[in-house]
């Protein structure tokens, strides 16, 4: 009885070990199952999903116009304080003074890509971009101004 158990355990063990070796042997001979992606080489073909949150961007149209009214909802909704909006008073053609953004400062180094500023924005002036290669040699390069120089608010956006 003891011998039966003894040899039974040996054979079942060898069987389980051979099952594992069969699997690794299968993958050793089937190179088409390899899942590695060669990242810097496949950069051209690499397509991030549309929703991927890589950084905050402010789209400008061809007339260099953005949609940010400077309402500061994003600044308030940001949990990390990575957005700072500096506004100015701008005299409109009809003579009225209106609040417009001067600089839209984005601290990429503090951003956690939670996307809450984009959610809070009432005019969809900011979006999450797909760019993810943010590495820089110095931290100062991670402080960005999102509104382009000379840009202005698109007409009709309030």
């Amino acid at each position: 009885m003891f011998l039966k158990e003894y040899f039974g355990s040996i054979f079942s063990s060898i069987k389980s070990l051979l099952t594992g070796m069969k699997l690794t042997g299968y993958y050793f001979t089937h190179h088409n199952k390899i899942i590695t992606e060669e990242y810097p080489d496949n950069r051209a073909a690499l397509k991030m999903p549309e929703r991927f949150r890589g950084e905050v961007i402010m789209p400008h149209d061809e007339k260099n116009e953005h949609q940010c009214t400077g309402c500061q909802s994003c600044e308030l909704s940001c949990p990390n304080g990575s957005i700072k909006i500096i506004t100015k008073q701008e005299i409109q053609p009809d003579g009225k003074k209106k609040k417009r953004i001067d600089t839209w400062v984005y601290h990429l180094d503090m951003c956690t890509m939670c996307g809450m500023c984009v959610e809070a924005c009432p005019t969809t002036a900011i979006l999450m971009g797909n760019e993810f290669e943010h590495s820089q040699y110095e931290k100062k390069y991670l402080k960005k101004v999102l509104n382009k120089p000379g840009s202005r608010l698109k007409d009709g956006v309030e």
């Binding site: 993958y27 050793f28 590695t36």
Partner: peptide
């Protein structure tokens, strides 16, 4: 190489 191919790597 053996390890890589068994582990679905290059």
């Amino acid at each position: 190489k053996v390890a890589a191919f068994m582990e679905l790597r290059l």
